[in-house]
Design a protein around this nucleic acid. Structure first.
Length: 279
DNA sequence: CAATATACCTGGATGC
DNA sequence: TGCATCCAGGTATATT
């Protein structure tokens, strides 16, 4: 599920309920996620500590503690964070629980276990965050997400523009759903080699990226199969998807049938009428 | 450097 | 009802 909008919806849902709260206890499952759950670091730097604020970088949530530690959470494909009464029975695939001082739990549930949980200890947090952030791409809502920079990123790269949009080391937060939607809105074929795009076309991509990601955040994200916000409510942006998952359906703009192709192993949807492939 | 494959996992949909 | 197969929002790593 979770691309930038779903992660941001999660952040916003948790921010007020968690700010200033203390994590009285942390518990976890026996499974590993993408990496092992850092039990020792959780015990040492998160348990008993107060939460200061929650930020997002790329598709990662950063829970900043008052002691300077940072709990870094990635939702993978199926991860969800829920806020729930502490006495509720554990659900299958609950892998991390932050027990709060008001009787509520923050529960991380992830059936496929592609998510990750990392703790940056207070003494190294600044350095670890700098190293981490350097490896992540431009934030679509950030000041560096401008046509000049994208033109420079694409220079000499023959990769398809969709693959470039989804390359998290170059651009942060855009995954398969939103890459398809953004390119449709910008009227650019997904398989177009990135280095051939003009400054004007990058301008459209920037504008449509921001517009669509913002609409999706406002709609509470896209719930394709199982994304839920922190209160257990689904998002509704999937109802507004123009091309993703709509193979053979009529294009909302011109009525032509939406094509499904495979690009880099990922399902790609586009309208051949509105997104002509130019050589 | 680019494109592709593989790996990590579970579960839902589909087809027989 | 059962079983096999395919597919899914992500990312890291290996291979060609």
């Amino acid at each position: 599920m979770p691309e930038l909008p779903e992660v941001e919806v999660t952040r916003r849902g948790l921010l007020a309920p968690l700010s200033g709260r203390t994590v009285v206890r942390v518990s976890w499952s026996a499974h590993r996620l993408r990496g092992p759950i850092p039990r020792k670091l959780l015990q040492e730097h998160i348990a008993g500590q107060q939460i200061r604020t929650i930020d997002r970088r790329a598709k990662y949530l950063l829970l900043r503690m008052v002691n300077g530690a940072v709990l870094v959470i990635h939702l993978g494909m199926t991860g969800k964070l829920g806020l729930i009464q502490g006495q509720t029975t554990l659900h299958k695939h609950d892998h991390l629980v932050l027990h709060l001082d008001n009787g509520l739990d923050v529960r991380f549930n992830d059936s496929r276990r592609f998510g990750s949980i990392v703790v940056w200890p207070p003494d190294h947090a600044a350095q670890l965050e700098a190293d981490f952030s350097r490896k992540e791409g431009l934030e679509p809502f950030g000041p560096a997400f401008i046509a000049d920079n994208l033109l420079a990123l694409a220079r000499g790269r023959r990769v398809a523009v969709k693959s470039l949009l989804m390359n998290s080391r170059l651009i942060a937060g855009i995954g398969n759903i939103y890459a398809n939607e953004i390119l449709f809105a910008a009227r650019i074929a997904p398989q177009q080699p990135a280095h051939l795009l003009t400054e004007k076309e990058w301008g459209r991509i920037i504008q449509e990226s921001r517009r669509i990601l913002q609409l999706a955040i406002d709609a509470g994200g896209s719930s394709i199969s199982d994304f839920l916000g922190v209160s257990g409510h689904p998002g509704y942006f999937q109802l507004q998807l123009a091309v993703y998952g709509r193979k053979d359906a009529p294009c909302p703009r011109c009525g032509q049938a939406i094509l499904k192709t495979i690009q880099g192993g990922r399902a790609t949807y586009h309208c051949p009428g509105c997104q002509p492939h130019v050589e």
